[in-house]
């Protein structure tokens, strides 16, 4: 399987992009020049600071630098480059202290400037560095996909497995319920479920609430597919063999039937992670998910809801680009996985 992904250049690239994204998320405190909640009150909606190697006179500098910016118009937050101020970029520089992996206390950051400000992707309405917040936000947006998929797939496979294996009334009941869940308009279901939880929750509670909501919506479709697969696997001879030597139903489901659905599950999981990322973003975008000052790609975009802000400060859309790239990578990877495992799958689903 890995072999065929390596052969598919696009899929291999996607896999690498995802590795990089997860790596960035894990080391966010170190890579981000600023903590997610540091506000530069004197620099709201600061435009992205370009990194220069050549100064305004065309002289080359080995150490890259950024120019200082002057606020020209404090009402419309309009800035101009101040060529008289140069701030060289230092690596492994001291900044705000943080706990790497939550254990090691350090004040080192991958890069930063002294005195001036470095906003690779500009700043938001409170003068917070968008690049730094995107790195912290990646932790939420990227992990919600994995945890959500894991939870709903566990529920989905177990319930689908039970439904397909036992059949009869149990099957009927489960299938009817999953039908209802699936035919529910998912956006409204998400809103209604969100209303079940109190509006004010701690940030960890919100995170798990979102996972629970999305998994509750997501398991049904999967359970139906697994059920169908179990129905066909159930009739195979090795299951009969297992039965004849007296294996229990649970053992047969867990040891013999579900492992046969793994390749399908892997593809389906890869292709459904984007749904969870989108679900989180949608909730946070509407102010119902991750709350400020914590960053998620979704809630960072909520300031873009005002079109005057979007038109004057287009860099606030950067988190949307991150969502797009992540989803694209997962889709390409899932597609490649499907192509790689397809022949076996076709036989199984038929």
């Amino acid at each position: 399987m890995m072999e065929s992904i390596r052969k598919n250049k696009l899929a291999f690239l996607s896999l690498n992009i995802l590795f990089v994204l997860y790596f960035l998320a894990i080391f966010a405190d170190f890579i981000a020049p600023y903590p997610y909640d540091i506000q530069h009150r004197d620099a709201p909606y600061h435009p992205p600071t370009q990194i220069h190697f050549f100064d305004e006179k065309g002289n080359f500098h080995l150490r890259p630098f950024v120019y200082g910016y002057k606020m020209i118009d404090p009402i419309n937050k309009y800035y101009e480059v101040d060529y008289s101020k140069k701030y060289p970029i230092y690596f492994f520089t001291a900044g705000e202290s943080h706990y790497l992996f939550g254990i090691f206390k350090t004040d080192k950051h991958l890069f930063g400037v002294k005195d001036g400000k470095i906003f690779l992707l500009g700043s938001d309405n409170l003068g917070r560095d968008i690049f730094s917040r995107m790195l912290y936000g990646a932790r939420i947006s990227l992990s919600i996909g994995l945890i959500g998929v894991f939870l709903s797939f566990t529920i989905g496979t177990v319930i689908g497995g039970i439904s397909g294996y036992f059949g009869g009334k149990v099957d009927n009941l489960i299938m009817r319920f999953s039908e209802i869940l699936m035919s529910f308009p998912s956006f409204y279901l998400m809103l209604a479920l969100r209303a079940v939880f109190p509006i004010t929750l701690s940030s960890t509670e919100v995170f798990f609430m979102i996972v629970v909501i999305l998994s509750f919506i997501g398991w049904a479709g999967l359970a139906r597919v697994v059920r169908g697969m179990v129905l066909s696997i159930r009739e195979q001879e090795y299951v009969l063999a297992a039965k004849s030597y007296g294996a229990s139903s649970l053992r047969i489901i867990l040891k013999h039937i579900i492992p046969n659905t793994y390749s399908y599950l892997l593809i389906a999981a890869t292709l459904s992670i984007p749904g969870y990322i989108l679900g989180e973003s949608a909730l946070s975008l509407l102010g119902l998910g991750i709350q400020e000052p914590y960053a998620s790609w979704g809630n960072m975009l909520s300031s873009a809801m005002s079109y005057t802000a979007v038109s004057s400060y287009p860099w606030i859309l950067a988190p949307g680009l991150a969502i797009f790239i992540t989803i694209l990578a997962f889709n390409i990877l899932g597609d490649a996985l499907r192509d790689a495992l397809d022949p076996k799958l076709r036989r199984l689903i038929k």
């Binding site: 984007p274 989108l278 973003s281 949608a282 975008l285 975009l301 873009a304 979007v310 859309l317 949307g320 680009l321 969502i323 797009f324 989803i327 694209l328 889709n331």
Partner: peptide, 9 residues
């Protein structure tokens, strides 16, 4: 892969 809301923005 382009999220609808991002496209809308």
């Amino acid at each position: 892969s382009l999220p609808g809301f991002f496209f809308a923005f």
